[in-house]
């Protein structure tokens, strides 16, 4: 198993490099660059920049060189000194910006994941056990509604309701009085309170989908012949459910944990913009619009690496859960 993990980790290196190259290539594909966008903004505010000044700027930032040269100096900086380049629109190193937003992004994503699993798995299981009951129909109805509602609309509705009931739309992640305050218990409470709406909005569609998956898995597992064997041994129903059906039904769900993290990362951009969250979504969005290539490229690269690590984690989890896969891997 350790050999398998080591092998997989080694394979991740060339894959990450290939991904970084593709990412960089795609980002620089649209015509123009950050400087041309900058010039357009300047001229809109009445300031005209001549071609010479622009060329000078390009030279300073190295934007006049071909894309592969730019790519190699960028990737070289990352590999040798952890330097992700310089964000042109923020006028700060990319690593600094990433550092600033990464923490909150990860907290919100993890909270959303936990919310999704804690809500979806029990409801899915109960729906299957009480198939065609009122509860099952209710969960199914709510589930389809949740899947069909666009996130931005859901966010606006929740903000409106929050404003109606508590007089606060819960925009952002901190109340103004805590925004710059040091981390105290009160500030944590404030953060938790503000996280409710984002977590629900980002998590609902995933939760609803997972309820369906879980219900289907459970129904499938509950009708397997070895469940009859267990019953014929005299095991009580609840134990059969716990030891056999549920144990087998959660496997595919758990084995996709790795990917779902990235889905939440990338899927929450619109929600983050609507709710004014200080997470990576809006930053990424703006970086792409302004062709801030190093910032955008670094985010995408990190995302790709997260996906790779997530997939590896999923595979390890699945091997740990399923002996058939585990033994297969042992020989590999």
């Amino acid at each position: 198993m350790i050999r398998y993990i080591a092998k997989r980790t080694l394979v991740m290196i060339p894959v990450s490099l290939a991904v970084s190259m593709i990412v960089f290539f795609i980002i620089q594909l649209p015509p123009g660059d950050f400087i041309s966008g900058y010039a357009a903004k300047m001229s809109a505010s009445g300031e005209v920049m001549d071609a010479q000044a622009l060329a000078k700027l390009r030279e300073n930032y190295g934007l006049d060189r071909p894309w592969y040269t730019q790519y190699f100096s960028w990737i070289w900086g990352i590999l040798t000194s952890g330097d992700f380049g310089y964000s042109l629109s923020y006028n700060r190193p990319v690593s600094e910006i990433i550092g600033q937003y990464m923490g909150i992004t990860v907290i919100i994503s993890l909270a959303t994941m936990i919310f999704t699993y804690v809500v979806a798995i029990p409801i899915g299981i109960l729906s299957a056990v009480k198939k065609y009951s009122f509860f099952d129909y209710f969960a199914t109805g709510v589930g389809f509604l949740g899947m069909a509602t666009p996130n931005f609309l859901f966010a606006i509705i929740l903000m409106f309701l929050s404003f109606q009931w508590w007089g606060d739309p819960m925009l952002g992640l901190f109340s103004p009085e805590f925004a710059d305050a040091p981390w105290t218990a009160a500030k944590w409470m404030d953060l938790l309170k503000h996280m409710i709406i984002p977590v629900i909005v980002i998590g609902t569609s995933n939760t609803c989908e997972l309820i369906r998956v879980m219900r289907g898995q459970m129904l499938d597992e509950m009708s397997k012949p070895h469940i009859v064997t267990a019953r014929a041994k005299g095991l009580p129903e609840w134990k059969i459910l716990l030891k056999y059906s549920m144990r087998a039904a959660v496997n595919p769900v758990i084995s996709t944990i790795g990917w779902s993290l990235t889905t939440i990362f990338t899927g929450s951009t619109i929600t983050a913009i609507v709710l004014n969250l200080p997470t990576q979504g809006p930053i990424m969005h703006r970086a792409l619009l302004s062709q801030d290539m190093y910032l955008a490229g670094s985010w995408l690269l990190l995302m790709a690496i997260f996906t790779l690590i997530g997939t590896l984690l999923s595979d390890i989890l699945l091997a740990w859960l399923d002996p058939r896969i585990r033994l297969d891997r042992k020989e590999a």
Binding site: K224, P225, H226, V228, T229, A230, Y244, A248, D322
Partner: peptide, 12 residues
Amino acid sequence: FQEPMTALSPLH
């Protein structure tokens, strides 16, 4: 049972 392949749990 008839099917020894499926009558045992594969995870235990």
